[in-house]
Design a binder for these strands. Structure first.
Lengths: 219, 219
DNA sequence: CCTTAGGTTGAACGAACGTTAAAAATAAGG
DNA sequence: CCTTATTTTTAACGTTCGTTCAACCTAAGG
């Protein structure tokens, strides 16, 4: 669970309307941040897309930095929960192998970011932004590192004798490749000179599983 | 060779001093763009780092967009040349295989961006920025796609019967993983909980070669 | 139904942005 | 050496940025 900064005590429950407004603002911010990045996004763009005044964005989201954090954190718990559930499901099948662990990590992400609407698609690009800029390291640590560490341990279990350095490198390669589907799918389609409607989960899984096996073998 | 926008005819040769100033400005722009991204970089930051006035940046680099293009294009030719030379060298060894093609693509990039000083290191991050934002697609097409197409053809040669779609996907996974070494090396070190001074070329090569082989096998 | 905490608006703040114009300094070319 | 194209500085333009404040409006709680 992701910790939130302490709010000062409320004396009344928020109204239905304000909750809906807040959601609309976060949704708009998600889309704008994903499309233009943090610096390229403007509060006015976000407010306009949400159909509210700029001051209201600040009221619901705090500073621009804080708003960015809130938007990233909002879906992080659900993504983590789905990954852990997939991991448990793989374990329940018995005889957990590398491929099963990677599938539990990759599957939910690709599923959500390609088959669950525009907002999850934008969220995928958002994670790509966060992961490629050291500036957002605190956000990564708060939102994604706990899950990452769990999967790193699972990978270590199914690949005994593998140097930690190699496992970490492979993990980053896997994450980068996974995020490239959100951030650079246009590039794949460009190079293939054909529209790509396929689900790339299987391809990515094959690629990473084989890659992992290859780099952890003793030299 | 990368085409440049036509300049209006000069009547005098540029002075040594102005050439040096121009280089200083492009160097500064390279560092600032790499660190803060396009939107996050300011002309005043660049000017300050180059030790000149803001107006001079505009004089030597044109608009901010154009300056960005110039900075990216500046080293693209050398990178491409090194990759093609490496490819020829691999061919000269005879019996070109997938691993050799990938080594010719990855090796020069990692070599330059990790062992050739701060500017090449920044240039690596710059390419990562360009490759992850569809906004810079024209730059990618002008600077990197020609080389990419050559290597895609070479890969197709050493992997006959491989569907083009799979090869394209694998190529993007490879590029993303390669760029992650420039953009997310801190992440690898974080996860490994140890500083990493190793050259990751071999690891990346193993990972991608095995991944490629795996995804192009007939289902 | 009142009271008032909380939501929302509209307008404005100062700062930073990319860019430009004109003057001053420099050095290339005859 | 003189002329003048080019380089560089200085100062400013107009715009947009994140943020704030005071004023209304809405609706939760008693």
């Amino acid at each position: 669970m992701i910790k939130k900064p302490a709010e000062k005590q409320r004396q009344r429950a928020p109204s239905q309307r304000s909750l809906e407004t807040r959601e609309r603002i976060l949704d708009a911010a998600e889309l704008v941040f994903a499309q233009h990045g943090f610096e390229g996004a403007s509060i006015r763009d976000i407010a306009s897309k949400a159909g509210v005044q700029g001051a209201l964005v600040h009221h619901h989201g705090g500073s621009k930095d804080n708003l960015f954090f809130v938007v990233v954190a909002r879906r992080a718990d659900e993504l983590a929960a789905r990954r852990l559930a997939a991991l448990e499901a793989q374990k329940a099948l018995g005889d957990l192998k590398l491929r099963g662990v990677l599938a539990a990590f990759i599957g939910p992400f690709i599923g959500l970011t390609t088959h669950s609407g525009a907002h999850w698609r934008a969220y995928g690009r958002l994670i790509a932004h966060v992961s490629s800029d050291e500036r957002w390291r605190p956000i990564s640590e708060a939102c994604f590192d706990p899950t990452a560490k769990i999967f790193l341990e699972e990978i270590a279990k199914v690949l005994p004798n593998a140097p930690q350095q190699q496992v970490s490198a492979g993990f980053v390669f896997m994450v980068s490749s996974m995020l490239s589907i959100s951030a650079s799918k246009w590039r794949i389609q460009d190079l293939a000179q054909a529209p790509d409607d396929d689900d790339l989960t299987e391809t990515l899984l094959e690629f990473c599983a084989a890659g992992f096996e290859a780099i952890v073998k003793p030299a």
